[in-house]
Amino acid sequence: MAESASVPAIAPLRRGEDRPLPSIRRRQLREAAIRGVITLIALTGIAAVVLIFVFVAREALPLLTDPEVRGEASFGKLFLPQVLRPNRPPGFMWQPVSGVPKYSMIPLFVGTLKVTAVSMLVSVPVGIAAALFASEFAPPRLREVLKPVIELLAGIPSVVLGFFALMVMATWLQSAFGFSFRLNAVVAGLGLALTVIPVIFTVSEDALQAVPRAYREASLALGATRWETAFRVVLPAAAPGVLAGVVLGFGRSIGETMIVLMASGNAAITSWSLGDSVRTLPATIAAEMGEVVFGGAHYSVLFFIGVELFLFTFVLNALAAGFVKRLVRRMSGGKA
């Protein structure tokens, strides 16, 4: 009969030996402290945004609570047509400094929409096409030069780009297209596009580079050309990231101040012609905030414009985030 193998006896745990080693405990405490600091920093950023919004909304609150301010700038006067002159049909006018102040938002909305539309119509196709070329077709040496040059535009101060649009682009566009006004929505939109293109290019190029190489190899193995692979495989796969870049560019476009202030003409005209001078919401705040009477109706209306910009940007980002999630879910095979 074989002898049973001897099993070493297990010594009983002494009191206190079931606790983690001091080094492990120190590492856990350090990780908990780092986690807490990171969480605090994140909450600080969120709190800062909330406090800014609360401050802006508080300064605009007299439009609802102060009878004197409401009498001068009620919501009806902000958004509905008003009688501007006797025996004339009602219209919209932004003229806060006059015997009878007029605070119509419609000319500012129209101007903001025209400048943003021109900017996005130029910057979206140019930015995405440049990102697609740099990611899929450019030789390595050209890519190393092209990407920093385009991203360098984001580092140029907006006042410099505004000066360029004012002195160079305005004269050239007026002579080329015969605009009646030298400074108009087209000049401001094209100048604004110079700041939006780097944003869309950078985010889109990163999204295209993140597409797995196996997608490209599978498409080429099935007989597709490089152009077909880029447009029908790579670009749809990177669509969520490209859309995020477009949303960021749109936010930059609608919130830009200095370029529009210098190159748009700053005339609050209710006209859908791109050749007319315009005034945007951010440019109005920048141009008039330093000259208003503290606590007056004009002061509250300017802060109300800031609230509008806050809400519009928040709603746009929320809608874009929801659309991106649905798009990612659909591309991954889940239910939309």
Rank of each mutant, 00 (worst) to 15 (best):
G241A: 05
A237E: 11
A224N: 10
D206K: 06
A237P: 10
R216W: 07
T229N: 09
V242D: 03
Q209L: 15
L243R: 01
T225F: 01
P236G: 04
T229D: 09
V242R: 02
V247Y: 00
W227Q: 01
F250N: 01
L208S: 04
Q209P: 08
L208V: 11
L222N: 06
G251W: 15
P240I: 08
R232I: 09
G251H: 11
E217T: 09
G249M: 07
A210V: 09
A239V: 00
L248V: 08
P236H: 06
Y215T: 06
L220A: 01
P212N: 04
G241P: 07
L243P: 00
Q209M: 15
L243K: 00
T225C: 00
L248F: 14
L235A: 05
G245Y: 08
A230N: 02
E217R: 13
V242N: 01
A239P: 00
R226E: 14
D206S: 10
V233W: 03
A207F: 12
R226K: 08
A244T: 15
T225Q: 02
A224W: 13
G249L: 09
L243N: 00
R213S: 08
V234P: 07
F231I: 13
P212T: 03
L222F: 13
R226F: 07
A244C: 10
V233L: 02
T225M: 01
V246H: 07
G249Q: 03
S253G: 12
E228Q: 15
P236N: 06
A244Q: 10
D206G: 06
V242H: 02
R216Y: 03
L248M: 15
R252P: 04
A214M: 15
G223I: 15
A244H: 07
A207M: 14
G223M: 12
V211Y: 10
E228G: 04
V233C: 01
A237C: 08
A210Y: 11
A207W: 11
G241W: 10
P236C: 06
V233Q: 03
R213H: 11
V234S: 01
V246L: 09
L208C: 06
P212E: 05
V233T: 14
L248T: 05
P240Y: 01
T229L: 03
R216F: 01
L208P: 03
R232P: 03
A244R: 02
S253M: 10
A221Y: 14
L208M: 15
A224R: 13
V247C: 02
A244K: 05
G241F: 06
L248I: 10
P212M: 07
L220M: 12
L220R: 13
Y215P: 05
G251P: 11
D206H: 09
P212A: 02
Q209N: 14
G251N: 12
L248K: 03
T225K: 02
S253H: 04
Y215C: 12
G249D: 03
A210N: 14
F231H: 12
R252I: 10
Y215E: 15
A214F: 13
A238V: 09
A207S: 15
G223W: 14
V247I: 14
R232D: 10
A214W: 14
E228H: 08
V247Q: 01
R213L: 14
S219D: 09
R216H: 05
L235I: 05
A239C: 00
S219C: 09
A207R: 03
P212S: 07
A221E: 10
Y215V: 14
A239S: 13
L220C: 00
F231V: 14
L248W: 08
G223P: 13
P240W: 08
G245T: 03
P240N: 01
